[in-house]
Amino acid sequence: MSLDSCWTLPHAPLVSILHWEDGCVLYDALKTSTTLLSPLAGQVIERLRDGAADTATLAALPDAPDTESLAALLDDLAEHGLIRRKD
């Protein structure tokens, strides 16, 4: 998994997120779904709300884990349709 995969948050204006110590809650108005996320996943979403970012940029987030765990997290978020890999 390369560090230059680029990630986006689809329909960002319709996504709301609340953060607490034990995790984040994300609301997607388009899918009318509410999802519980880890604090780190919440940070990733919040960062992507400001615009697309590649894996290397996300690896620089304050609480980011090692690259392998981060890549697994990003794949997981993408699989659930919460973020999208930009081609």
């Binding site: 607490w20 110590e21 984040c24 809650v25 509410t34 519980l36």
Partner: peptide, 8 residues
């Protein structure tokens, strides 16, 4: 109980 869990 944490707030995120309370929320859900």
């Amino acid at each position: 109980m944490g707030r995120a869990r309370m929320f859900m």
